[in-house]
Design a protein around this nucleic acid. Structure first.
Lengths: 343, 343
DNA sequence: GCCTCCTACTAGAGCGCTCTAGTATGTTAC
DNA sequence: GTAACATACTAGAGCGCTCTAGTAGGAGGC
């Protein structure tokens, strides 16, 4: 890049002004849709601009302005769910008058570096999607500029957070199974993953509230492999005479999928031998041969709240808020009662 | 956003210069790692800067510079594969001295809008990942500024392209099946999807070269559902006495997965009754209960070539190149010979 | 001594916009 | 006629950097 030539020169506002026979300021007025230009002039300026292939230079634009009107978003390039959230942010951002600046993180590119980019662009606020960085770093960031953490819990109340109510989601899943007549319900947990602690709690609360005994957690995880491993454990339990489980609430859909696989391979039938509920309502959960009952997160709502909250924080830096969005149970065939009610 | 307050004032180069007792220009030199400052001064400036929480303003930086050094990347927020490619671009971009500016497209946000953002940021070149927009629009874009289309074929040679050699991939898949002794090999095709025509061609060429008869294409598609539908057709063929296929090459892994499901549900065994090869080497293909033989695209290489080519195009705008990266066969158990060789 | 050369630094003009504070040219009121 | 007030437009000072063209001052050569 050392000896690179200057890039193809693109027309500036000056060029447009000259060709249209007006001042630079007037062109600026036209492009900002501000009052102060006649309709005829506006049209002329627009025509000239499009003839020249002119588009305002965003960098200069932002520099001159008091505010940048930019909202930075850092998200995981590998997480399909993050992509969905980002997509859903565009509409509310536009509506609120902000522009989104994206930066991705991944195993090969740390969250810190991604966020540095956003700082350099002078975003007015940042939305960090599902970060794994330490709470203290997030707190430090939030002292530098308004920060909203999306889809992750941050204890301490020092940072703005928008997330799904995982306790409620786990509760819905468990209560659904209870309502189906299940009494011995297992939870394949997510270990130290974000949300795992809440899901454990929601599961346990529901059982206790229904007068049932929580069963010990089975170590699970986030992936199909983790689920399959747990599934083997569950299959072993199913072979016992007494005390065998009749339903499982898995940490997420991928985990549930692995579990379904292992349990099926061991010769058991879902939902007759074992009902299964996942979490996330991912695409695979909807496949006709999977039809996994699951808990759906409200992507649209999460994205909108995150943008709104970032905007609110720009106006009132002192506040701090934790917004919790309710998830929704999606009943499919892995948990539907098929035969007689159980006892 | 109308009556928003000015954002928290952040320190400027001026502030750092004043506090360090040097000129603005010197601070600039330090932050650009240019020669012209003593080591002691560098250290002092750096210290002061970090004490003030100063980071150079990217907008101003780019404005002042002749070149922006920015590479725009437009990608699909919903495509996991796009995310992987973007991730793999960061390293080569840094190495070449460019910075990546990301913008996403999705059903709710058109590719055109995404690209407009990149134009506004005065990127020196853009890399468009797997666009579905019309060829003529891509050609028009490439006239405005250096453009590289990644992971899609663009006929006419008017646009720079970096893509996987799908003909070769299909050939590898088919030849592998032939080498395993299969003689009646089906192709579940991808219809009008990008790459589908090439994969059909590669499949047919290999069969003809081996003196075998290509079988009629089975209408497939990109999703598990499409694969399952095709799978039912294949299962019906397997029940016949004569002329039944012994292997299938599916358009992609998702399609292959649906097919495996349908064929399995119909009571057939893989790979004994039917060998299956997919395409993409996606995460699911690696699951131990799937172990799908597939064709892997070289993400790292694709990303690197895309960045290199964008950089080359900035220097030599007149050229146009089509870079084709070879895919690689990954043999797993859905195609491994298990019993006797077939005739 | 003076001249040259090097290193360490500074002055100041942009970059392409935005935005405040104007100036012209009506139009209306009285 | 002129004051009052629109509306349509312009001048020009920033915004926070980069970068060219300089200056100051010390080391070294002869």
């Amino acid at each position: 890049m050392r000896d690179a030539p200057a890039p193809r020169a693109r027309p500036t506002m000056e060029d447009v002004a000259a060709r249209a026979g007006v001042s630079r300021a007037l062109v600026s007025i036209v492009f900002r849709n501000q009052p102060g230009a006649s309709e005829a002039t506006r049209q002329r300026v627009r025509d000239v601009a499009s003839k020249l292939g002119y588009a305002p230079d965003q960098r200069a634009r932002l520099l001159g302005r008091k505010r940048t009107g930019q909202l930075g978003v850092a998200f995981g390039l590998q997480h399909g769910f993050h992509g969905e959230l980002v997509e859903a942010m565009y509409a509310p951002a536009e509506h609120t008058g902000y522009e989104l600046v994206l930066t991705g993180f991944a195993p090969s590119r740390s969250e810190g570096r991604a966020i540095d980019d956003l700082l350099a662009y002078r975003c007015e606020a940042v939305i960090v999607v599902g970060p794994t960085m330490r709470t203290r770093d997030l707190v430090a960031l939030s002292k530098q500029l308004p920060t909203v953490v999306l889809a992750r819990r941050v204890p301490g109340g020092a940072v703005d957070v928008v997330r799904t109510d995982d306790i409620d989601g786990a509760r819905q899943a468990t209560q659904h199974l209870i309502a189906q007549g299940h009494q011995r319900i297992l939870h394949i947990d997510g270990g130290r993953a974000p949300g795992a602690a809440e899901r454990r709690r929601g599961y346990r609360q529901s059982l206790v509230a229904a007068g049932l005994d929580p069963m010990p957690f089975i170590g699970g995880g986030l992936t199909e492999m983790d689920g399959a491993r747990a599934g083997n454990t569950v299959a072993a339990m199913l072979r016992r005479r007494r005390g065998k489980p009749s339903a499982v609430f898995a940490f997420n859909d991928q985990c549930a999928l692995g579990l379904l696989q292992a349990v099926g391979a061991a010769g058991f039938t879902v939902p007759d031998d074992l009902a299964v509920v996942g979490y996330d309502d991912s695409r695979v959960a909807r496949l006709p041969w999977v039809e996994l009952t699951t808990i759906g997160q409200d992507v649209r709502e999460l994205a909108k709240k995150a943008v709104d909250q970032a905007s609110a924080r720009i106006h009132h830096p002192a506040d701090r808020l934790e917004t919790i969005v309710s998830p929704e149970l999606v009943v499919r065939s892995t948990s539907r009662a098929t035969k007689s009610p159980r006892r």
